[in-house]
Design a binder for these strands. Sequence first.
RNA 1: CGGGAUGUAGCGUAGCCCGGUUAUCGCGCCUGGUUUGGGACCAGGAGGUCGCAAGUUCGAAUCUUGCCAUCCCGACCA
Length: 492
Amino acid sequence: MSKELTTRAADYSQWYNDLVLKGGLADYSAVRGCMVIKPYGYALWENMRDQLDKMFKETGHENAYFPLFVPKSLFEAEEKNAEGFAKECAIVTHYRLKNDPDNKGKLMVDPDAKLEEELIIRPTSEAIIWNTYKGWIQSYRDLPLLINQWANVVRWEMRTRLFLRTAEFLWQEGHTAHATKEEAVEETERMLDVYATFAEEYMAVPVIRGVKTANERFAGAEDTYCIEALMQDGKALQAGTSHFLGQNFAKAFDVQFSNKENKLEYVWATSWGVSTRLIGALIMAHSDDQGLIMPPKIAPVQVVIVPIYKGEESKAVVDNKVNGIIKELKTLGIRVKYDNSDHARPGWKFAEYELKGVPVRIAMGLRDIENNVAEVARRDTKEKQSMSLDGLPVAVKKLLDEIQVNIFNKALAFRDENIREANSWDEFVQLLDDKAGFISAHWDGTGETEEKIKEQTKATIRCIPLNNKQEEGKCILTGMPSKERVLFARAY
RNA sequence: CGGGAUGUAGCGUAGCCCGGUUAUCGCGCCUGGUUUGGGACCAGGAGGUCGCAAGUUCGAAUCUUGCCAUCCCGACCA
């Protein structure tokens, strides 16, 4: 992206919205704060979902589905969790409409159809799931219970943003139950690792693994682990979380099991989730002014082939040649699209697929066929090269791998350049204003200090990195002693 | 919820200050033709509750009031 755009948040927003809309990922919807995910965007989500799902299953999890509606009494059972989400809940209060006698052709809520107990549209599913687990867990033999759900949730945020914070969004939420604390903590960390691996290896987005401070912790959790990514405007984005829930939900929903000694114990819990917000992360981490840049491993279309021809006759020749290549590409497992539609000219197609971020474009005409070559263009660097048709599919596969690595390395270099140390308050404030990005600094460990820093600079502690180097120092605000640096940033 | 901006065809817009024929232009769309190696060209055509409602007026896209929606900036955001 161009440097000018980073100077103003509003311009960056415009840039981001254009990428989403023109890239064909999503549309604004008729419903406030929601969005329509278009087929291209959904295909991207499906690729991400399929990969994550595979990784969940490899780590022993199974999928299940729980209800959208959570009775209010269940919702409020775990106090902290309920309190944390109370301000952003959509609530079903009635179950019927009727004709409005005062307003012909219009409907009104039937006041006689008021629900005895309101239903909360899930902002997260801990409550309904733990209420269900109560009936599923009796013995240590029922543990661990490792379940994941793919679902939609609703959070009535004041301010929304395509993919990053929509009123309704798609996500997955894992909810596990364990016999011991150690096992639950291990699970929490394992799933954080799955997320980090997915972000880095598939989305090509480098992330920092860490633990949230008490202030930023999930409502109802003992510990919240997270992965934090850096966007191109220097703001941080929480890309995924994994929570160690202790026995909070087990106690709130009375989920106990008999251990081997026939003694009753409360189970230990975890929950973890990533959402369509990851798509927002992907967009903001890689795209440039020409449009989206999709990492090959999850790109809906990995290779697009554009034919160049004059008249039906030459089109048939090119079609014939291309079809052979497509067959080979598909054999190699490559997602390829052949756009030989006649209502757009090659130049238009080139621009269109660049907007959509298709990693590799192959252009082929009679001239190429005569010379036994094709023009191969890569989206990440915009380089074009003529490649021999002999062994082209294998070369393209290699190129896709190269692009995946290159996109990641570029994002990694940007991220690392934008982690800076601040050793005084003045330096901290200066860095925030000049450079954005992450700032590594000492903090006295109190919520009050964290809150003050947030008030004065809008920067929050994104995380305390895992395996953090222990280092004596003084808090940048209070000067109190500190044992380690933490990562600050302004965030989405 | 506070501040700012915007709302005219599928999209982007002119007109509004200073009310007056048939609401401007571009993209897109339809038909026919020529084209096709970086967002083609010619000709013809279709498409409008000017966000909604009320008011002022002989007459409202234009003035007044209210409402609604969207975007941006805040506040909020496991």
